[in-house]
Amino acid sequence: MLNRFRWSIFLNQKLVYGLYILLAVVAALKQYLHHTFNNYLIFKYTFWHLIDLEPLYVNSPLNPYLDCNHYGPAFALFIAPFAVLPDWAGTVLWNVANVIVLLWGIFSLPLNKNTKIIIGYICAHEALTALFSYQFNVALTGTILLSFSYILKKENFKSAFFIAFGTMVKLYGIVSLAFFFFVKDKWKFILYGLICLISFFLVPMIFSSPAYILKTYHEWYISLVEKNDSNTTLDSFQDISLMGLVRRVAHNKDIPNGPMLLGGLALFLLPYMRISQYKEVAFRLMLLASTLIFTVIFSTGSESPTYIIAFAGIAIWFMLQPKKNWLVISLLIFAFVVTSLSPTDIIPRDVRYFIRIYSLKALPCAIIWFTIIFQMLTMDFKKHDETNQLSPVSDL
């Protein structure tokens, strides 16, 4: 009884929000005070460059930051409220805004409250890794979760809004179209999606000009192509993906992405053949977990802070398991140690370097993703929907 009471203290949604906000503030201030907030400056100046009609994707020595921006023009509007603030306030509130969107997404899922709280705890450390870099991936994970949840709730406009937003900001948001088959009124959903996409395309023109935005989208495409080429070197901090793992273990940067991407996509699509399972909430949640992990392990742009997206998928998968046997628990621990802890000082420097240089951060996620695909192809998900951990969603 006493142990149950002690554990119940932690099963509190306000405590999870408090923990994440504390992590956001501490990470932001720590990096700001050590003058290591280059990513935030890249984000901040997308707004100022946009309103001044300056190039968004040029690594100029005149810029007060290093490296290039790789986010879409619509991102400048999202960062605007923070960009106008002093940097100490902007960095803190930026991180806080990101974790609020992430938790909004987690607590929107059709799971019972305690399950969502545990998912929040499982993701906390990986979120912290992204927060130290002021990464938008934290909020992007939330938008993918929200687009999924709103489809289940038949709030098509809200779902289409978050899909369009994620796509126009970082392209990753487009993966939420994986949930399109769960949409009931598909034509209305497509219409809403087009309206949102056009809006995100046009609104930045109000703060700049149509010619500037058209030119900027072309430059964005070029920057993404160039970034993809540079990511596949064997010693970069990007390409922490399944393809990167294969290239680095083989010591061959010329191994192409195409065959591996096509193979991964074929496996990803296989569970769609089980049409009879579509109505089961657990099947849909497993597809959500698969999508979140697939997005990261099959992207050459994946870096360490990107893995908050994949780790949300791992947390959802773990909580959906009807039996937390030794294999399931071992996979979670493996992912937590190799994927989540590997960038930290807890892991010896030589081991950290070994994990990074061979893209081994992707390995546990890949193993869990293959497990998800196998389970989606073999399990009867009706039994999952009869457990207490899933919240009912009517008329699916």
Rank of each mutant, 00 (worst) to 15 (best):
M1W: 10
R4A: 13
N12W: 06
Q13W: 03
L15A: 13
V26C: 08
A27E: 00
A28V: 10
A28C: 09
F37R: 01
Y40N: 03
F43E: 10
K44G: 04
K44M: 03
H49W: 00
I51A: 07
L53N: 08
L53S: 11
L53W: 00
L62I: 03
Y65T: 04
L66G: 06
D67H: 07
D67L: 12
Y71F: 15
A76M: 06
A76Q: 03
P81L: 10
A83W: 02
P86R: 08
T91G: 10
V96Y: 09
A97M: 11
V99W: 07
V99T: 10
L103A: 07
W104A: 14
I106H: 02
I106G: 02
L109A: 09
L111V: 11
T115N: 05
K116T: 13
K116R: 15
I117R: 05
I119N: 01
G120H: 00
Y121N: 06
I122C: 11
I122A: 10
E126F: 06
L128S: 10
A130D: 00
L131K: 01
S133N: 09
Y134H: 13
Q135I: 03
A139G: 15
T141C: 14
T143N: 07
L152D: 02
A160K: 00
F162Y: 15
A164R: 01
T167K: 00
V169L: 05
K170D: 00
L177K: 01
F181Y: 13
D185S: 09
K186P: 05
I190E: 06
G193Y: 13
G193A: 07
L194Q: 02
L202F: 12
P204S: 11
P204K: 04
F207T: 06
Y212N: 00
L214N: 08
K215N: 15
K215W: 07
W220H: 13
Y221W: 12
S223N: 12
V225L: 09
E226G: 12
F237W: 12
F237N: 14
Q238A: 14
M243D: 02
D254T: 12
I255A: 03
P256S: 04
G258H: 06
P259W: 09
L267Y: 01
R274L: 08
S276D: 14
A282Q: 05
L285N: 01
M286R: 11
L287R: 12
L287Y: 10
T291V: 08
I293N: 01
I293L: 03
F298M: 10
S299R: 05
L320S: 04
L320P: 01
W326L: 14
L327H: 05
I329T: 15
I329K: 14
I329D: 04
S330T: 14
F334M: 08
A335K: 02
S340H: 02
L341K: 09
P343T: 06
I347N: 01
V351C: 04
R352A: 09
Y358N: 15
L360V: 08
K361G: 13
K361R: 12
C365L: 14
A366K: 04
I367F: 11
I368C: 09
T371M: 07
I372Q: 07
L377H: 02
T378V: 11
F381P: 03
F381K: 02
K382N: 14
T387Y: 01
Q389T: 13
P392M: 08
